[in-house]
Amino acid sequence: MAKNNLTRVTEFILMGFTDHPALELPLLLVFLSFYLVTLLGNIGMIILIRVDVRLHTPMYFFLSHLALLDTGYASVITPQILATLATGKTVISYGRCAAQFFIFTLCAGTECFLLAVMAYDRFVAISSPLRYTVTMNPRICWSLVVGAYTCGVSGAILRTACTFTLSFCDNNQIDFFFCDLPPLLKLTCSDTTNREIVIIFFGNFVILANAFIILISYLLIIKAILKVKSSGGRAKTFSTCASHLTAVALFFGTLIFMYLRSGSDKYLAEDKVVSVIYTVIIPMLNPLIYSLRNKDVKAAFRKVAGRFQVPQRV
């Protein structure tokens, strides 16, 4: 233990991009463009939902919080990537690493719960359309959102405390581009058996429990849709769930691939690609997924854009 105290790590070195120095400039431009689109799309979605009364419904209320979470965890990861690519500085302090891990875990965990809440919202909207606004009243909506944030914060505190109270003694090189759980656990010199059980069990429980809620919600949604007599009516009803189902498939698919399979160094390259998808690509795609086929969002955008048009002089 004396040796561990003398060599205790105070900073980490992110090694995620050091193998490809020639790609640093192209990657910088790509990640910068992705991040700008992410900010524009998600913040724009929040503004549209705020200013247009047609979007003051439970579905868009939850969607605004999804956009906020996407902005949050993209903003805690992508700027670090941009700084590394722009300056070549790969060092991140122990405190910043812990803060990055906490905020990322908070946003990603809360998003798991929020997507489950949104699935329940779609079930209520389809199975009981006449009672939808009564069932999903503002008090219930806020309770569900606060519950999602509470669960996300609790999980983030638990996972961060369990991870960063471990001892990091010798190797401080993280073969990744941000402070994520699997590469951090590989560096610790503590006995991680008990804590890994807690961390991994809780993380897997969050993913699987919410995936189960979403699955049950969609089975009930399908049951309700099958009661619709016309095929056109069934297609129109299910189309209201298509955007959410796409977002769920992307988000949970990457999380399951990343965290629910056995860890191994031979999967490191794949892990890096998948982590880029759920930390950079998905936050950018979600506003597009929810807006491209959504008439209400398009109408709200045209209304807001019309306010900024310069009147033509006669």
Score class of each variant (00 low, 15 high):
72 G>R: 00
189 C>F: 01
11 E>F: 07
294 N>P: 04
237 T>Q: 14
229 K>L: 01
70 D>V: 00
47 I>W: 10
164 F>S: 08
203 G>A: 14
236 K>W: 01
266 K>S: 11
237 T>C: 13
46 I>S: 02
255 L>M: 13
253 G>L: 05
266 K>L: 09
90 T>L: 06
16 G>D: 08
117 V>P: 01
55 L>N: 06
186 K>R: 15
218 Y>H: 14
178 F>Y: 15
149 Y>H: 15
71 T>M: 13
185 L>R: 11
215 L>T: 13
166 L>S: 06
86 A>P: 03
1 M>E: 11
186 K>M: 11
284 M>E: 01
22 A>C: 00
198 V>M: 14
47 I>S: 01
259 Y>E: 06
242 A>E: 12
114 L>S: 02
288 L>R: 00
82 L>N: 05
66 L>S: 07
277 I>V: 15
107 C>K: 01
116 A>C: 06
5 N>K: 09
93 S>M: 04
230 S>C: 05
248 V>Y: 09
239 S>L: 12
171 N>V: 04
143 S>C: 10
246 T>W: 10
75 S>Y: 08
135 T>M: 12
20 H>G: 00
51 V>P: 00
113 F>T: 02
274 V>N: 13
271 D>E: 14
176 F>I: 05
68 L>Y: 13
146 V>E: 03
308 F>L: 14
87 T>M: 09
298 K>W: 14
185 L>H: 04
297 V>D: 03
46 I>M: 15
141 C>E: 15
84 T>H: 10
200 I>S: 11
80 Q>T: 13
110 T>W: 06
203 G>N: 14
34 F>M: 14
258 M>N: 05
58 P>K: 07
313 R>A: 11
133 T>F: 13
151 C>H: 03
313 R>K: 13
128 S>Y: 11
199 I>R: 08
84 T>C: 02
108 A>S: 15
311 P>C: 06
306 G>D: 09
264 S>M: 04
60 Y>T: 06
143 S>Y: 10
189 C>K: 03
30 V>P: 00
40 L>G: 04
271 D>W: 08
138 P>T: 09
91 V>N: 09
192 T>Q: 12
181 L>M: 14
141 C>Y: 05
279 T>V: 11
183 P>L: 06
205 F>T: 15
250 L>G: 08
3 K>D: 12
217 S>T: 04
250 L>W: 12
233 G>L: 09
274 V>W: 09
133 T>H: 14
76 V>A: 09
104 F>C: 10
34 F>E: 05
175 D>S: 11
5 N>L: 12
94 Y>V: 02
66 L>T: 12
311 P>M: 07
158 L>G: 02
43 I>L: 14
200 I>C: 03
280 V>F: 03
279 T>Q: 12
255 L>D: 01
104 F>V: 07
237 T>W: 03
23 L>I: 00
